[in-house]
Amino acid sequence: MDAVSPLAADIAPLADTAPPALTDQVALARLYGQPLFKIPHDLYIPPDALEVFLEAFEGPLDLLLYLIRKQNFNILDIPLVQVTDQYLGYVEEIRSRNLELAAEYLLMAAMLIEIKSRMLLPPKAKEGEDEAADPRAELVRRLLEYEKMKLAAQQINALPHHGRDFVQAQVLIEQSLPQRFPDVDVAELQAAWRDIVRRAKLVQHHHISREALSVREYMSRVLKQLQGQRFVPFEAVFAPEQGSAVLVVTFIALLELAKESLLEITQAEAFAPIYLRLTYSSALPVQALKTVEAN
């Protein structure tokens, strides 16, 4: 055997690779993100990497019904020996591949073996019955009901389905007719107006107007009103029609006059009417009036 030089050994691995620019164009596959340009000689494909199911069954009853109909057996007189052998063969096949999938099929297999064993024994009638019941009767009843439901499901599935077999068409047609607005009833207008008024009351503001009132001016008015009179009822000096502000200022003016000894507030007895009068001085009212007006 010829010896291989170190240079040749270094060049050999490079022959299996391609430039980075051609990686996406010529790579056969990718393994862990790395491109493969030829199939490796030591490639291992596990047995369960690819499984092809020619027939898919929805459960044990579906498989049992398939075996019966495929061989044209009479469902009312099932040859249990042949059907059980074929069923157990299928169960053994899926048990070796997927134990979880075979679990529900094993229960039906146990039921078939039980029925098969009961058919080998002499028939024994129950109390009150003339003939012994067929051990296959319950299984036949379940198979017939399942077949009815399966055929009904196939008929429903054969019906056209929206989104699968057809799509609902939508067409927009523009009408040239003039737009007609609905009529408005008078009661609706009244209700709308009441709603507006109600909302306006919720947001209304209370405005306070400021009025400049002079206490000195009302002191002069009270003195003029009391001048020349001996007693004047307390409520006679007030003018309620002019508002509460004038009443307050008038009352303050009376207190100021009484404080300055220009006015006397008298009462004959408890709970008796209150009267007002000027102080006992002939020159005091005129002089006090001039003083108040000057201030």
Rank of each mutant, 00 (worst) to 15 (best):
L99A: 11
Y90P: 03
P35W: 03
E92M: 15
P40F: 01
F57N: 05
L106Q: 14
L107Y: 13
I45K: 10
I45P: 08
E100P: 08
V52P: 00
L67Q: 13
L54M: 00
Q34V: 12
D42F: 03
D85R: 09
L28H: 04
A18W: 07
I78G: 06
A27Y: 02
Y66T: 07
A102R: 03
F57H: 06
I75N: 13
P79G: 05
F53R: 08
V26N: 13
D16P: 00
K38F: 05
D42Y: 04
A27N: 06
L99V: 11
K38L: 11
T17S: 14
V91N: 05
Q25E: 15
Y90G: 09
L14S: 12
Q34K: 13
A56T: 02
I45Y: 11
T23F: 09
L54E: 12
L50H: 05
L14W: 00
L31S: 11
T17K: 09
A49C: 08
V52F: 02
L106S: 12
Q34E: 15
M108P: 09
Q71V: 03
A56N: 02
E100L: 12
T23L: 01
L63D: 01
I68W: 02
L101Y: 06
V52R: 04
I39M: 04
V52D: 05
A102I: 10
L31G: 01
P47R: 15
L65Y: 08
K70T: 14
Y66W: 12
A27L: 04
R95K: 15
E92V: 15
L54D: 10
L63V: 04
Q86W: 08
D62A: 08
A109N: 08
F37H: 08
A29L: 11
V81F: 10
I78E: 05
G59A: 00
E93A: 12
Q86M: 06
V83M: 08
L76D: 05
G59T: 04
P13W: 00
V26D: 13
P20S: 15
T17C: 01
Q34P: 00
P79K: 01
Y90C: 06
E58R: 14
L101G: 07
I68N: 00
K70I: 05
